[in-house]
Amino acid sequence: MTQTAQTLSTDATTQIADALNQCVAETAVATMLAQNFHWNVTGMAFGPLHDLFQKIYEDHFVAQDDLAERIRALDVYAKGTLAGMLKRSKISEADGVPSAEEMIRLMKEAQETLAETLAGAGELAASLGDTLTEDLCIARGQTHEKFAWFLRSHLA
Results as ranks from 00 to 15, higher is better:
residue 101 E to M: 09
residue 108 K to Y: 13
residue 114 L to A: 10
residue 111 Q to R: 08
residue 112 E to S: 12
residue 102 E to K: 01
residue 108 K to R: 15
residue 115 A to F: 15
residue 104 I to M: 00
residue 95 D to Y: 05
residue 105 R to A: 05
residue 93 E to W: 02
residue 114 L to R: 13
residue 97 V to N: 06
residue 116 E to A: 14
residue 108 K to Q: 12
residue 109 E to N: 10
residue 104 I to R: 02
residue 120 G to W: 10
residue 92 S to R: 15
residue 105 R to M: 03
residue 120 G to S: 09
residue 114 L to M: 14
residue 96 G to V: 03
residue 114 L to K: 10
residue 103 M to R: 09
residue 98 P to F: 02
residue 119 A to R: 15
residue 111 Q to S: 07
residue 106 L to A: 03
residue 111 Q to T: 14
residue 108 K to G: 12
residue 100 A to C: 03
residue 98 P to E: 11
residue 102 E to W: 05
residue 101 E to I: 00
residue 114 L to Q: 15
residue 93 E to S: 06
residue 111 Q to D: 08
residue 103 M to W: 01
residue 118 L to S: 08
residue 93 E to I: 00
residue 114 L to C: 13
residue 111 Q to W: 00
residue 110 A to W: 11
residue 113 T to D: 11
residue 98 P to W: 05
residue 119 A to D: 14
residue 94 A to M: 01
residue 105 R to Y: 00
residue 110 A to K: 11
residue 119 A to V: 15
residue 102 E to M: 01
residue 99 S to I: 01
residue 117 T to L: 11
residue 112 E to T: 08
residue 108 K to H: 15
residue 111 Q to A: 13
residue 110 A to P: 11
residue 104 I to K: 00
residue 119 A to E: 15
residue 92 S to T: 13
residue 98 P to K: 03
residue 116 E to R: 10
residue 118 L to H: 11
residue 91 I to M: 05
residue 113 T to W: 08
residue 116 E to Y: 12
residue 97 V to A: 06
residue 114 L to I: 13
residue 96 G to E: 07
residue 119 A to T: 15
residue 100 A to D: 01
residue 93 E to C: 00
